[in-house]
Each structure stands twice: as C-alpha cells, then as structure tokens.
Design a protein around this nucleic acid. Sequence first.
DNA 1: TGAAGGTATGAATCCGGGTTCAATACTTGG
DNA 2: CCAAGTATTGAACCCGGATTCATACCTTCA
Lengths: 208, 208
Amino acid sequence: MAYRRTPAVQQRLDAQRDSIVSAAVGLLTEHGYKGLSIAAVAERAGVATGTVYRHFTDKSDLMVRVFREQCGREVDAVDAVTSTGSAAERVARVVETFASRALRKPTLAYALLAEPVDAAVDAERLVFRRAFAGAFADAIRFGVTTGELPPQDPDLVAAALVGAVSEVLTGPLSAGGASTTTVPDLVILALRAAGSDPALDQPEGVPS
Amino acid sequence: MAYRRTPAVQQRLDAQRDSIVSAAVGLLTEHGYKGLSIAAVAERAGVATGTVYRHFTDKSDLMVRVFREQCGREVDAVDAVTSTGSAAERVARVVETFASRALRKPTLAYALLAEPVDAAVDAERLVFRRAFAGAFADAIRFGVTTGELPPQDPDLVAAALVGAVSEVLTGPLSAGGASTTTVPDLVILALRAAGSDPALDQPEGVPS
DNA sequence: TGAAGGTATGAATCCGGGTTCAATACTTGG
DNA sequence: CCAAGTATTGAACCCGGATTCATACCTTCA
C-alpha cells in the first residue's frame, strides 16, 4: 500500500464538500429548487459534476442535506425565543422571528415552506413544519396551562398559525409585497387567533 | 370540396374534448400534477397522445383550462354562501364550505391551492386564491362596516385565513388526518382571528 | 523516484416525458 | 363508389438534466 488519506487531504475534501453545500444553498436562496441542477451547483462550487457524486449519492441526497441544515437554522432561531415571557409574548416573538427571516430571504422561505420537489425532501419539510408549529404549540400550551389563553387544541391552532403566516408572507409576496404594518398586523392576528385578551397585555415594545 | 365538418362530427369532437378534460381532472384529483402526463391523460381518455394536441396547443394550455374550470366551481360554491347573514355567519360558512370540499378531495385541493407547476398555472392560482380570499375579505369588510368586527385590514386577515385553513387541511392531512372536531375548531379559530366576539353570536346550528 | 492507489474530470450515456408528423382511417358531397 | 379533405394514430424525435465511467491527475510512502 502506498497511499492513505492524510488529515490534510481530508480537510481539503471537507472544504470541498462545504463549498458544494454552500453553492447549493446559494442557488436555492436565489432561484429556488428549479435553479438547483447538479451542473449549476458544480459550476458554482468550482468542481466538475462528477465530483458532486463523490460527496452525495444522489441529487435527492444533496437536497435533503441542504434542506435539513437550513431548516435547523430556522428552527433554532425560533426556539431561542420561546422560553421566556407570557404566552402572548412568546407567540408574538415566534411570528416576528419567522416573519422577519422569511421577508429577508423570500425565495428560500418559499423553498423551505412550500415548493414541492422530491418525496424525500417533502418528508423533511413535514418535519420542518412540525418543528415550527411546535414552537407555536408550546407557547399556546403554556398559555392554556397558565389560564392566560382559553382552552383549545394547541396543535391545530399552531398549524393554522404556520399556514396563516406563510400565506401572508410567501403568497401575496409575489404580488403586492409586504408593508411596514404587515408584521405587526400578523402579530395581532395571531394573538387573537390564540384567544389572547388584548386588554391584558399590550406587546408594545416587542423586540425586533 | 367534398368534406365539411358536420354538426354530428362537431359534437363528437366536443365530447372527445370533454373526455380529455375529465381524464385530466381525474388524474389531477387522484395523483396531483405529477400524475398528469399527456400519455396518461390520452390513455385514460381513450385517445392517442397526438389527439390531445388537436384540442390543446400545449400541456400548459390543457392544465390551465382544467385548473380554471375546477377553480370556478370552488369559487362559485363559496360565493353562493356569503351574501346573507351576519359577518360571523358568513366567515363561518366560507370556512365550512372550503373545508368540506377540501376534505372530500384532498389531492385536488392541494393541487389547486399549493402544488406548483407551470408559470401559467401559477398565475391562475393567484387568481384563485384571490377569489377565495376575496370571499373572506368581503365578509370581514361587511362586519367592519357594521361594527360587528373591529377595524382591521380585511385583505391581510383574509389571506391569513386562507393560509390557515389550507395548512390545517392539506398539511397534516397527509399525516394525522382530520378529526370530526377539525372543522368546528377551524371555524372558531377563524372567528377569533377576525375579532368576532363569541358572546354575541353562537353559530350553533350552522348549515353543513 | 516510482509503483500503488486514491481523486477529479467532463464528455458520453441514459431517461422521462413533451411534441411532431408521415401514415392511416374516416367523412362527406357528388 | 370515388375524390377531397379531415381526424387519429403512435412511433420517432427532441430536450433538459441526472448519472456514469474511462481517462488524467495527485498523494503517499518505500
């Protein structure tokens, strides 16, 4: 034997893999899944198409991994914001976090939330939506326990909120666009939907 | 000249066209857009692939027409239900109509509401969603005028309601499934979101 | 340095599905 | 029944994009 993969080589391979992933993320962010061809990813990463297949077995494999990584970030961002405060504050923060991120990268948000692709990716999306809805559900469950919110099915309401926010942000986005009052309006709507009594707590100085 | 299209022939052609359309609708209802290949449509309609192109210039053309027809039915069903009663009743009826139809044909509902396909079809979908949201918006606007509902942006709330209902019905549908309380819960949620005071009107005997 | 064995390349291949069109089967009016 | 003109057929063609693999290039270590 005369060759064994050294740490240096391994490091280069890892870097190469990373550059492929970030090329894919870039394309996804800019053009959605339709822009995500192996050829495009390879070119953007500065490698040959065949090289992509040395890191990922499939196009599907690549997509799933990219998807997971991005979803993880979103979920972390939302989770980081639901551990303190009243139920209303928690719900409001989830909406705001969700919304501000979606508005910053609309194509990516659409790709993660709605754009259908592959059975494998769609399965991951389900996980993602569940995680997101989970954040809402936790906040609502908390409020119901406290008595701050009326009795309700937290999972159903959470799903509805995910749908409502996604729709307002990714649907009309293509057309009308979001105004400065969109997010605050969404927050009010979400609180109402959860049955929060607006008289009790006015989330005036809500953190941006 | 020795041949001119007779009424009888024209009738047969119309029937053929209809059978192609309903084949397409059937496939869409059963398998969504991914099942909608020209070959499959032709086979189901009992014609050759080439024949499809004597009625529709494009696959896109076929899809748009099918889409329009289906959307029209949905919109009519909803519109038929928003002209009388209190704002709360109107909102409740839209939710119920929407929901019961979506539950009856989930794959079709998904195809009409969300599944992306073609630029042309997506444009039509925008029209469809607008029409649907329009029904909600009308009901809400009516309520705001009356004073039955608090001041709000009817279009935003309407969009959110469309999103919420779609999400609950087409999202978790794949997994959990809808229980008997799903639709009533959705109605309550929608009324709350619109700011309807539950003390005022209890839509007990809401028409199914 | 050279043999051994990884790694990278990208043109060629494969594949699914829309689209075409020459050949065939019908209809019609005479 | 024939000629003219239309309707139908479905195999062939095309195209975009994933996947492969023979070839060339690098690393390692004795």
